[in-house]
Write a protein that binds this DNA or RNA. Structure first.
Lengths: 252, 252
DNA sequence: TAGTGGTCTAGACCACCGT
DNA sequence: CGGTGGTCTAGACCACTAT
């Protein structure tokens, strides 16, 4: 876009987000003043402000009266306010998600998998390793274990399926109703470092993730490792919604 | 209030909030339609909507197109501080929190601080560095910047004050109403490594944290760096309840 | 269909920032 | 001082919900 074609604060927010990601505006720089954005997009000032406010809530921008809107972060943040898959989240941020499977194997569940997936120890499970990318750049290494009841569906998907969650929903009617995430930091293992092209023992942001179907069965157990500086997670708390928990035991 | 005296979306939001707390509107009931609130407060619809949107962001209200604004929660203040404060969280987990100030300095706000705290660039701020421990073991390095309006209160606290949040509340009536957290992973800087006794460039879990008072002013901007394996963050999300749920089970 | 919220317009005035 | 964001007005039309 970047033109004045259509309208809508959502599209404008998406376009601005896109332009920030593309480097048209850099961190700590100031956005063009509102009246210029109004010209550019051909909408009323209120609409532009609606878009800017949305980006501010998401941590991308920050206004200062009398000065302008400065770019807070060019990082993309995942908010837990919405339960989204990697691909759906990427699309909502105006980026192109990618993925490729590097390894897949039928195995017997180890202790950790049996605990998280609530299947019997040594039950058959499917382990899949994927590299996930944003706009063509690898940003995350995902190791997911699926219980037997979803394994066949997963194996039938193409290796470069961009959105596994979407495909599971569309093709098999398997819906994620609930998910638990545990976040911590780890050193890259030698396997990690090879797949993500980073030095061994460099820091990675790890998200352990278990998602559940509407009937409560676990759909998958994932260990996602993000390159630092590419993705961060954001939690907004208020008196009424407590969405964040600290946990003292090691994440596993 | 509850009258149509003055104006301003903040006052309207505050008034609605108070009326909800006072029980005039109960949980799961529906607010009067916007046009009636417009009459009641004697302002334009945009102003009413601005106030409603603010309450919605706090989790108090939730709109449904075609229906109305339903009251999501009538809860307020108390339990909140318990989850937000490092010290109180530790106590609730049966651990003994500790802390010591290693550095404190009055400075001029740099670009990042002025952005996050919404104070002018080069405004005077107070920077405090603390080491925080659990059961006598150092687990976290905390660098916090306070704006001028809280700096004096902070400086009056003893260096080993275990719970800053608690003290601010009890002694000065400064209450945290809302907070944003951004979580990612970083390499330990040389300063980090010295203070936390880890190798340089080893992974740390970083939490950037801005907390706000009830009137919306920023109370503090913090950069907390946790040793991996000591603390993790857990988030539980579900599709049906847009607001997030707490999960009391341990990470493992 | 009537009533609700969702979005948008085209102005206006004020408060704050920098020079 | 001129330029910026912050707030407000008084309309308008659309999309969705209930009946």
């Amino acid at each position: 876009m970047t033109a004045k074609n259509d309208l809508g604060y959502r599209q404008i927010a998406l376009d601005l987000s896109r332009r920030i990601i593309d480097g048209e505006f850099t961190r700590d720089s100031v956005l063009p003043p509102e009246h210029r954005l109004v010209e550019h997009y051909g909408v009323a000032r209120g609409t532009v402000r609606h878009a800017l406010a949305a980006l501010a809530r998401q941590g991308t921008l920050s206004p200062r009266q009398g000065s302008g809107w400065t770019i807070q972060s060019t990082l993309q943040t995942q908010s837990f306010a919405h339960l989204r898959s990697f691909a759906q989240w990427a699309v909502s941020k105006g980026m192109v998600p990618g993925g490729r499977v590097t390894d897949t194997a039928r195995c017997r569940a180890d202790a950790r998998e049996s605990r998280r997936l609530r299947v019997a120890l040594h039950d058959e499970v499917l382990r899949v390793t994927r590299i996930r990318s944003l706009d063509g750049r690898d940003v995350m290494l995902e190791r997911t274990t699926y219980p037997r009841w979803v394994a066949d569906a997963i194996e039938s998907l193409p290796a470069d399926e961009p959105s596994v969650v979407q495909a599971m929903h569309d093709r098999f009617g398997i819906v994620t109703a609930h998910a638990d995430h545990t976040i911590d930091a780890v050193s890259a293992s030698s396997a990690d470092s090879a797949l993500l092209s980073v030095r061994r023992s460099s820091p990675l942001l790890r998200v352990l993730r278990v998602s559940y179907a509407t009937d409560g069965r676990a759909i998958e157990f994932g260990d996602d490792r993000y390159l630092p500086g590419t993705v961060s997670f954001q939690v907004s708390t208020s008196v009424t919604t407590n969405s964040l928990m600290r946990n003292a035991s090691p994440a596993d």
